[in-house]
Write a protein that binds this DNA or RNA. Structure first.
Lengths: 239, 239
DNA sequence: GTAATAGTGTCTATAAGACAATATATT
DNA sequence: AATATATTGTCTTATAGACACTATTAC
C-alpha cells in the first residue's frame, strides 16, 4: 500500500497531484533493430510505447515518460525519459498540451500529464542497437494501429497527430524526419504520409522552393532508372 | 515553517512539484467599477492582476489562479479561480502553455504552472460591481504597462499576447471582446488594437464577410453624425 | 527507343492589398 | 450643403491548383 492510499479523503483533497511528462515521438519507421517483420519497413507514422509493468493499467501500453525531476525543466525531463526509453536522440521536441482529467475511481491518485511531441530523423534511428534499458518493454506501433493504451494516452496521441498535421501545413516540419540531404520527392512523400493524401509534384516543388528554406547541395541521387533528383538541405529563414 | 521546508534535500527530490493554474484574462477595458481615472476608459488590452500578500514575491502582482483542486479539471480550476478573483464570467477560456522553470533558490519549492488565457466581452464587464472577494487586491493593468510581476508571470503574459495575436490572424477571436451585436468598424478596431496597426476598412469588411461567420442582424447603429453602420452577430461556421 | 521520374511552363481561380468612388446619416 | 464614416467598385499582385510539356537517366 502506497503512502497515498493511506491518506483519507480530506487529506487527499489538499494533496498536490502527481506531475508526469509524456512524449509522443514520431518516426517514419521503427529503428533498424526494432524491425521484426516486413511490415515494419513500411513508411508511415510510427511511435514508441512502453508496456506498463505495474498497476494501474498493468500490461497496457503507455507513452514514454516519467515524473518531473526536482532539478530539471519540463523539457529536460521529456528529453531524458524519451532517450532512456528508446536510446535514440530526437531531432525535435516541443511541448504539446497538459492533460489533467479527473480519474473516475476515488482510489486513483490525481495525475497531471504534461505532454510533449517529438520527431526522429531517419539518421537518428539508423545506427542504433537494442541497448540497455530497452528490452521487450518498448515497442513501435503505427499511429493508425495502436494497442490498448493506459490512462488518457489515446487522447494525447490524437492531439499530437492533429498538431503534427496543422504544423506541416504552415511550418517546416517534414524535413526533420529525413536525413540532412534529401530530394523533393522524399520531402513530398513525408508530407503525403502526414497529411494522408497525394500532392502534385510540380506545385509542391514550387511551394517549397518559394519558401526559401531549401538550399541546393549540388549533389544528386543517382542509381535510379530515371533522371536523378537534386538533393537539398534545410536552411532556416534569416529575414 | 511549512511542511515542505521540514523536508531534507533528498526527500524534496522525490516530492511532486506543486501544480498551480494561472490565467491571463484580456479585456478591451477595465470593468465599470474598476475605472478610476480617465485613462481607464481608453481601449487597449487590459488584464487583471492580484497583489500577493505573502512570500515569495510578497507585494508583487500575480496572475489570478490557484492550486489544482482534487475534484476539478484544470479548465474548471482556471475558470473558478478567475471568477473568484474578478467576479466576472469570461466569454472564452483556453489552455495556453505549461511553465515549469526551476527556481534558482534551493529553498524554493518546485512549481509547475499551467497557464490559461481568457477573454472578457464588453457585456461581461459592464454590469458588475465590486463584490466580495474583490478588494484592493485585484487591479487592472494595460498589457503594455505592467507592474512588477511575481514568478515567471511576465513570460506567461508575453506568451499569451503572442497567442492572442496569432489566433486573431486565422481564427474568429475578436468578436468575443464585443457585445453580441457589433458593427464591422468595432470589429476592425479590436483587430487593430490586438495587432497594433491600422487596417483598411474596405478590405477588412470583405475578408470578414467572406469568412461566412458574420450574420446581419437587420439593425443599424444610429445616433452618429454620419451614415449608420449595420450590425452583425457571430455565427460559427457549419460546413 | 521505352519507361519512369525530375523538373518547367502555363492557365485559371482565388485572395490580399491599394485606393477611388459612391451612399447615407447628422449638423 | 458640409462632414464623416459606411459601403461598394476596381485594379494589381501573389498564390494555389490543375495539368500539359520537356529533360535526363537506366535498360
Amino acid at each position: 500500500m502506497s503512502d497515498w492510499q493511506k491518506l483519507n479523503v480530506a487529506e487527499r483533497r489538499r494533496q498536490s497531484p502527481r506531475v508526469a511528462v509524456s512524449t509522443v515521438a514520431f518516426a517514419l519507421r521503427p529503428p533498424a533493430h526494432a524491425r521484426a517483420h516486413a511490415k515494419d519497413e513500411e513508411q508511415g507514422l510510427w511511435l514508441p510505447l512502453v508496456r506498463r509493468v505495474r498497476a494501474p493499467f498493468k500490461d497496457a501500453w503507455a507513452l514514454p515518460g516519467g515524473p518531473t525531476a526536482w532539478n530539471q525543466t519540463l523539457t529536460q525531463t521529456a528529453h531524458a525519459t524519451l532517450v532512456a526509453a528508446t536510446r535514440i536522440e530526437p531531432s525535435y521536441l516541443e511541448q504539446l498540451y497538459s492533460f489533467g482529467s479527473i480519474e473516475r475511481s476515488a482510489d486513483a491518485e490525481r495525475l497531471v500529464t504534461i505532454a510533449y511531441w517529438a520527431q526522429y530523423s531517419a539518421r537518428d534511428a539508423a545506427g542504433t542497437t537494442a541497448a540497455a534499458g530497452e528490452g521487450a518493454n518498448v515497442a513501435w506501433f503505427r499511429a493508425d494501429a495502436l494497442p490498448d493504451l493506459a490512462f488518457d494516452h489515446g487522447e494525447i496521441i490524437a492531439t499530437a497527430l492533429k498538431r503534427l498535421r496543422s504544423r506541416t501545413a504552415y511550418a517546416a516540419v517534414a524535413h526533420r524526419f529525413l536525413d540532412p540531404e534529401f530530394t523533393l520527392a522524399q520531402l513530398r512523400e513525408v508530407h503525403e504520409i502526414i497529411l494522408g493524401h497525394p500532392l502534385d509534384p510540380a506545385n509542391f516543388r514550387r511551394q517549397m522552393l518559394a519558401s526559401k528554406t531549401l538550399e541546393e547541395t549540388g549533389h544528386s541521387l543517382a542509381g535510379v532508372k530515371h533522371r536523378p533528383a537534386k538533393t537539398y538541405r534545410y536552411r532556416p529563414e534569416e529575414d
